[in-house]
Simulated assay, not measured.
Amino acid sequence: MEQNKQFLIDLATAKMPFGKYKNQYLIDLPEFYIVWFKNQGFPKGKLGNQLALIYELKLNGLEDLVKGIRNKN
Rank of each mutant, 00 (worst) to 15 (best):
K58A: 07
V66N: 08
V35H: 12
R70A: 07
Y25G: 12
N60M: 06
I69M: 10
E63V: 09
P43V: 07
G19S: 11
L11W: 13
K20Y: 06
L8P: 10
I27Y: 06
K5Y: 02
F42P: 00
D64S: 06
P43M: 07
G68Y: 09
L53S: 12
K20E: 11
G45K: 14
E31D: 14
K20S: 09
L47T: 11
W36Y: 15
G45A: 09
K67F: 05
E2F: 01
K44S: 10
I9A: 15
I54F: 12
N60W: 03
Q6P: 00
Y55F: 03
N4S: 14
L11E: 14
L65E: 11
K15T: 09
N71E: 14
F32N: 10
Q40M: 05
Y55P: 01
A12N: 14
Y21R: 12
I27D: 01
V66R: 01
G41W: 09
K15Y: 03
Y33W: 04
Y33M: 04
F18I: 06
L11T: 15
Q3H: 09
L59F: 03
V35Q: 15
E63C: 05
L47E: 13
N23R: 14
G45V: 10
Y33H: 04
G48N: 02
F7M: 03
G68V: 00
M16Q: 06
Q3R: 08
V35N: 11
K22R: 14
P43W: 10
G61V: 08
L8T: 06
K38R: 03
T13I: 04
L59E: 07
L53R: 13
L57N: 06
E31V: 02
D10S: 10
E63A: 07
G19N: 06
M1V: 06
G19L: 03
F37A: 08
K22P: 00
L62F: 05
K44H: 03
W36A: 12
I27G: 00
G45D: 06
M1F: 11
I54V: 15
Q50L: 09
M1W: 13
A14V: 11
F42N: 05
L57T: 08
Y21N: 11
L51G: 05
N73G: 01
T13D: 02
N60Q: 11
K44W: 03
L26M: 15
A12C: 05
K44Q: 14
G41Y: 07
I9Q: 15
I9K: 15
G61P: 03
Q50W: 13
K67C: 00
L62A: 13
G19E: 10
Y55G: 00
L29F: 08
L59P: 00
A14L: 07
G61R: 07
Y33I: 04
A52S: 15
V66Q: 13
L51S: 06
P30E: 02
K22Y: 04
Q3P: 01
Y55M: 01
G45T: 13
W36T: 10
E2Y: 01
D64V: 09
A12K: 15
K22E: 13
L51I: 02
P17S: 05
E56S: 14
G19A: 05
N60D: 02
L59C: 05
F7K: 07
D10L: 02
L62R: 15
N4I: 04
N39E: 12
Q3Y: 08
A14E: 07
K58F: 04
P30Q: 01
K67A: 04
Y21F: 08
